[in-house]
Amino acid sequence: MRRAVVLFIVLVVLLGTLLGLRLVRDRRAAEGPPGGSGVVEGTVVDVRSRLNARVVSLHVEEGSRVEKGALLATLECAEPEALLAEAEARLEMTRAQAHAAEASALASLRTSEAVAAQADGTQAQIESLAAQHGLAARHAERMELMGDAVTVAARDQARAQAEALSQQLAASRHSNSAASRQARAATEQQRASHEQALAAAQAVQAAEASVRRSRLSVAECELRAPLSGAVETLALDVGELALPGTVLARLVDTSNPRATFYLPNAELSSVRSGEPSTVRADAYPDRTFPARVITVAPKAEFTPRNVQTRTDRDRLVYPVEVRIEDPEGLLLPGMPVEITLSERSTAVAERRP
């Protein structure tokens, strides 16, 4: 009986000691700098297919590290390459048509200029013949007025000369009218040829755009890394069909690791964006990593339905994200860490009214 009492007393003392130590540790933690637990996160990028094609080959393995621009996978490219060849052939054809249209427009311009010059020449000829006809007609009238003073042959010759010039003048006027119509027609033809040349040039631009689009499709046959990082997953194997929008690989960039922890409402005043902090990882117990707060969420999480009492308000927590300095790349995504805010920021928060 006495032995049982002794064991009971020893057990009570031991439990009391453990409880006291736990209370002391909790109190020291509460009095220490604020912080919390989190996991290391990296920048995650999904590499997606833009084509409906089969996977021909994979050039990386899961877990391997790749540099930006590295070839990840090759897709079957027969159809995009055929479309590119067709677009390039159409481009050559439209360029030839554009050259022909330009030559036709230039020829039409030269023809229009020649016809216009011809019309100007006939107009000058009309003016010259009109002057000559006027002189011949007045000479014939004077010969008629002179009567028997001149011979009949001379009078007939004067009238014949005036009549001939009159006929030449009429013919020149007809020629000028025809030349003017030809000039107008040549001008319209030149304008139409110019419009055709412009349309051909626009067709060349459209064909060039089609070639660029086809080349982009061919370039999508090779999926490359958009950033440096580790290959977390490869979603497809060789021979599987990649549909547009299908995730083929997931990359994680660990060059700028981050971690998120949660601060209760009562400790929110102790943190501001840009303030320093310290990170410890279980994998490296004797080492700390400097970090800096980059964001403090403006909205609480795990919020009670009705916030009415002080206890309820203390249950509000706010996500805080820090960026960790890890130039050696020791911290891997998913690794648990402990984040502690610097004592300087805690002291500043305590001095705030």
Results as ranks from 00 to 15, higher is better:
Q189H: 04
R224N: 04
Q97H: 10
H59V: 04
L169I: 10
L341D: 08
I294F: 00
A179L: 04
P257V: 01
M93V: 12
K299G: 02
F289M: 00
L169Q: 15
A249K: 03
A225R: 06
S57F: 02
Q118R: 15
L216K: 04
R27D: 07
A78M: 05
I126P: 02
A53D: 08
L251C: 06
T254Y: 01
S172F: 02
P264V: 07
G32E: 08
T43M: 08
T303Q: 13
R352S: 13
R184L: 14
R25V: 15
A130E: 15
V13F: 14
S255K: 14
V40Q: 02
S217C: 03
E338C: 04
R344K: 12
I339T: 03
L234T: 13
P327S: 06
R142Y: 09
Q308C: 06
A78I: 09
E267V: 04
A235F: 08
T111M: 05
N265S: 11
D312A: 02
D148S: 10
A185E: 11
S64I: 07
A137R: 15
I126K: 12
L341W: 04
M143L: 15
V320G: 00
S104W: 06
V66D: 05
G16E: 10
R95M: 10
S270M: 03
A164P: 03
V238F: 08
A235S: 14
A100C: 03
T254S: 09
V10M: 13
V296K: 07
G329Y: 01
A130L: 13
V322W: 02
R313K: 12
L236S: 00
P285E: 02
G245N: 08
H139I: 12
A199R: 01
R215F: 01
S57I: 04
R110D: 05
F289Q: 00
L109G: 11
I339Y: 01
R344H: 11
S128K: 14
S193E: 00
L91M: 12
E208T: 14
L7V: 11
R352G: 11
L332R: 15
P319A: 04
V252Y: 01
S217T: 09
A89C: 12
R65T: 14
N176M: 12
R213E: 10
A179H: 05
V252S: 03
